[in-house]
Simulated scan of single mutants.
Amino acid sequence: MKLTSYFHNFFQSSQSSGILLLGCVVISLLLANSSAGESFANLLQLQLGPYSTAVWINDGLMAIFFLLVGLEIKREIIEGELSSFKNASLPIFAAIGGMVVPAGIFALFNAGTEYANGWGIPMATDIAFSLAIVAMLGSRVPASIKIFLAALAIVDDLGAILVIAIFYTEQIHWMYLIYTALIILLLIALNRLQVTRHIYYIIPGLFLWHFMHHSGIHATIAGVILAFTIPTNASDTEISPLEKLEHSLHTPVNFFIMPIFALANTNILFKSGMVDGLFSTLGYGIILGLVAGKVIGITLFSGIAIRTKLSSLPADSNWTQMVGTGFLAGIGFTMSIFIALLSYKGDVDIQDEAKFAILVASFLSGLTGYLILRKSGQKQLPN
């Protein structure tokens, strides 16, 4: 059966995927705070083989999302916006600023308190939600800004994963890390031997995910590593294995994986006293860290990199759009919640207060970034 032009356009539209994702956020919040909330929570904890539903979603499906983003980043490095050092270095400097400043703000409020261990919470950028917001803006935002945000979020998440591995992981299983390294070497060898069939990368990629998951390091990073071993070329006309895989992943990621991810990770149960937690040092550290710290750190470090001529602004962009992007990077959400759970193990009340503060901060950051980018991009729209 042939799809109508309406449905074809729907599935091709990145704007509609963003709307779908935000709709799932609302549904998840409503479910969590309804009579079905307990059943929904039990469903997420249901064991499916060796892992729970939530683990399959957050560590399994999201590894595929990271695979797609990694493919897009590699393509841009080889033949696109990130192919020059000046453009490629900017997301790295920006991500460093977007981690250091928020962590410093949190520590400023919470050093010496019972909340001090949560300094890593405002460092994280939720790549799925931030990209969904910028996708909704369509042509109002230049492609270079979308690529910059994706690269920034990747570097940010890599930084957050390293922070978790070094400071929040109770135990690293070194034998699994050795297995992981061997799989990576195999994937690199396949690339060097110019193996082009996807199956020869996907099967080792599954083992890579398994070993990384058991090593104690967040398994989604396996998707990025796998992406960077898929062969590509610098040609605009010849379709490479990377581009074929990238094309095949867009629809399932945008219209299945990301919505499922949103449903599973926004089920926050509102409790009495959570609002009071916003006006504690914990709340101040998280909200100011994500809402103010992210944009300050990203624009400050970006400005230094550009002023010293180490980097350059993304093509067809301006500083207003960079500020708007900095606010979008303040959507911490899933990774921030994950770090909060690790920071305050055994204290459910503090965990709930941290979750609510993250939700509020992410909403404020996302809304502010959306409005700034929408306003700054109006002049670029055709009449």
Rank of each mutant, 00 (worst) to 15 (best):
265 N>H: 11
327 F>V: 08
60 G>Q: 13
61 L>T: 03
88 A>E: 06
189 A>C: 06
97 G>E: 03
19 I>K: 14
205 G>I: 09
300 L>H: 02
137 L>V: 11
349 D>T: 04
46 L>D: 03
383 N>P: 15
54 A>I: 13
372 I>M: 09
263 L>H: 01
268 I>Q: 10
182 L>A: 08
339 I>Y: 09
7 F>R: 06
203 I>F: 12
198 H>N: 13
295 V>G: 07
201 Y>V: 13
262 A>N: 02
91 P>H: 12
160 A>H: 09
97 G>W: 00
251 T>H: 07
33 N>V: 12
353 E>C: 12
294 K>P: 01
323 V>F: 04
198 H>Y: 11
174 W>V: 15
233 N>T: 10
360 V>Y: 01
67 L>E: 11
73 I>V: 05
361 A>I: 05
372 I>H: 00
365 S>D: 00
147 I>C: 07
172 I>W: 11
14 S>V: 02
288 L>E: 12
28 S>G: 00
241 P>R: 05
254 N>L: 15
197 R>W: 07
108 L>Y: 13
257 I>E: 06
194 Q>M: 12
4 T>Q: 08
264 A>E: 03
9 N>M: 11
114 E>G: 12
306 I>K: 02
331 I>R: 03
256 F>G: 06
149 L>W: 10
156 D>M: 05
289 G>T: 05
74 K>T: 02
326 G>K: 09
334 T>H: 11
152 L>E: 12
21 L>T: 04
370 Y>T: 10
122 P>S: 09
20 L>K: 10
231 P>Y: 08
275 V>D: 02
143 A>P: 01
166 I>Y: 09
